[in-house]
């Protein structure tokens, strides 16, 4: 598995999250006339989800390293132990 495909998968996860958070039925939970700090709740919710998505993208594109494309270590250690 290459680094690019790892990033693709993780970003696809963010896409699914975004699609769910921005749509019915989650959206309907916040579609009420309530104010938080004087700002309509729905408006605030949209901004926060949007910002969250951006932060997640930043996190994934910056933090994903070549290490993540390798299989996790226990099996490797086991192999080394055997020989």
């Amino acid at each position: 598995m290459t680094l690019d495909s790892v990033i693709s998968r993780r970003l696809f996860g963010i896409f699914l999250l975004g699609f769910i958070l921005f749509d019915y039925p989650i959206l309907s939970i916040f579609n009420v006339e309530t104010f938080l700090f004087g700002i309509p709740l729905l408006y605030l919710y949209m901004l926060i989800v949007w910002l969250l998505l951006i932060l997640l993208i930043v996190f994934v594109t910056r933090v994903t390293r070549y290490r993540d494309a390798l299989p996790s270590s226990p099996s490797l250690e086991f192999k080394m132990f055997r020989h």
């Binding site: 690019d4 970003l11 896409f15 975004g18 408006y43 949007w50 998505l53 951006i54 993208i57 594109t61």
Partner: peptide
């Protein structure tokens, strides 16, 4: 009201697919 937002939410979501599709 918020009817203008979907036009910008869409591209934001596409950006997350950028690495898969756009690349």
């Amino acid at each position: 009201g918020l009817g203008f937002l979907p036009t910008y939410i869409g591209p934001t979501l596409v950006a997350t697919l950028g690495w898969l599709v756009l690349r």
